[in-house]
């Protein structure tokens, strides 16, 4: 609005400056906030990794170099959390992708009531994550939930117990909740990509005598491949950081069997109030995620160069 006050007769230089600064004026409020609330804490957090920061200890705060990382190297709970993260992320992404792809293929066919069916199957996506976690924790609870009884009846469980308190099986609880909650995301993304495939291709292929399997392999999959690759990459990073369901359902227990790195960081900061150590773990997680992303990008480059 201040720009409107300038009459047309002002010196062109002032006008030029005003014009050049205009995009910055539009983006400044968002940028300032992002820098203050995300970038500054990120840098602070990295510095905490090398400092002794404990919330309840007024004498803490000094630089301690690599002490946290040495402690981390001997922290069995951390290495367990790292293995659990791989398991949690791998199983969740794989199952979400498979079930999401099947759902997208099913919904891609026109049928009566498709709009309603789509609204219903995508509904879990709208459920807040903490509620999805509680909801599944209750389903697995033999007192009020049906799942232990059904699994017992099917012979999967020896007795209708809560799998969330069984160290061997506990991880399947959050994974089940995560798959239920995440299928719609994959399905929505893949369905959008499916609908962008030109229909003539399928007709031409049918005329040439291609069967459904052949059409899927030689038209659908190649068209979906870029979407699949980018969605899986993004979701892998996202799910490996996604601690809500685990914090809500098991809090990392029993005996740290469901603790992933992200929930371990949260526990260190929230329960132990050891901000320095939490930041050191977070820094390691960040480096690992960066390495993973770089690896994927490099892999993609080499594959593209080959093809």
């Amino acid at each position: 609005m201040t720009l409107a006050a300038h009459p047309h007769a002002v010196r062109p230089l002032r006008k030029r400056i005003a014009d050049a600064s205009e995009p910055y004026l539009y983006s400044a409020p968002a940028l300032i906030l992002i820098i203050a609330v995300m970038l500054v804490p990120l840098v602070l957090g990295i510095s905490y990794a090398f400092r002794d920061i404990q919330l309840l200890n007024p004498f803490s705060g000094g630089f301690i170099g690599l002490d946290h990382f040495r402690a981390l190297g001997e922290d069995q709970a951390f290495f367990r959390a790292l293995r659990n993260t791989l398991w949690w992320t791998g199983a969740s992404v794989f199952l979400q992708f498979i079930f999401g792809l099947i759902l997208a293929l099913l919904l891609d066919k026109p049928f009566a009531g498709r709009g309603l069916a789509q609204a219903l199957v995508f509904l879990p996506w709208a459920v807040p994550s903490f509620l999805a976690g509680l909801n599944w924790a209750w389903l697995f609870n033999p007192v009020i939930g049906p799942l232990p009884h059904w699994m017992h009846a099917l012979g999967i469980l020896d007795a209708p117990n809560n799998i969330l308190s069984d160290p061997q099986l506990a991880m399947w609880g959050p994974i089940a909740a995560n798959v239920w909650w995440g299928i719609p995301f994959f399905a929505i993304t893949l369905l959008a990509a499916l609908q962008a495939i030109p229909r003539d291709l399928y007709e031409a292929a049918s005329i040439d005598g291609a069967g459904p399997v052949q059409r899927f392999l030689s038209i659908t999959l190649p068209f979906l491949a870029p979407t699949i690759a980018i969605t899986i990459l993004l979701r892998t990073v996202w799910i490996s950081n996604f601690a809500d369901l685990i914090v809500v359902m098991t809090n990392g227990g029993p005996a740290d069997r469901t603790q992933i790195v992200a929930s371990y960081i949260f526990t260190q900061a929230f329960k132990r109030l050891d901000f320095g150590y939490a930041s050191a773990i977070a820094l390691v997680l960040l480096v690992l995620l960066l390495a993973y992303s770089m690896l994927i990008v490099l892999l993609r480059q080499t594959l593209l160069n080959k093809g």
Partner: peptide
């Protein structure tokens, strides 16, 4: 600006729990 915004989408937000509390 675009790069900065993309980066904020990639790093684990749980990293910021402690520093933001301190700030």
């Amino acid at each position: 600006i675009v790069a900065l915004m993309l980066v904020t989408q990639m790093f684990p937000l749980v990293m910021l729990v402690a520093p933001i509390f301190k700030m």
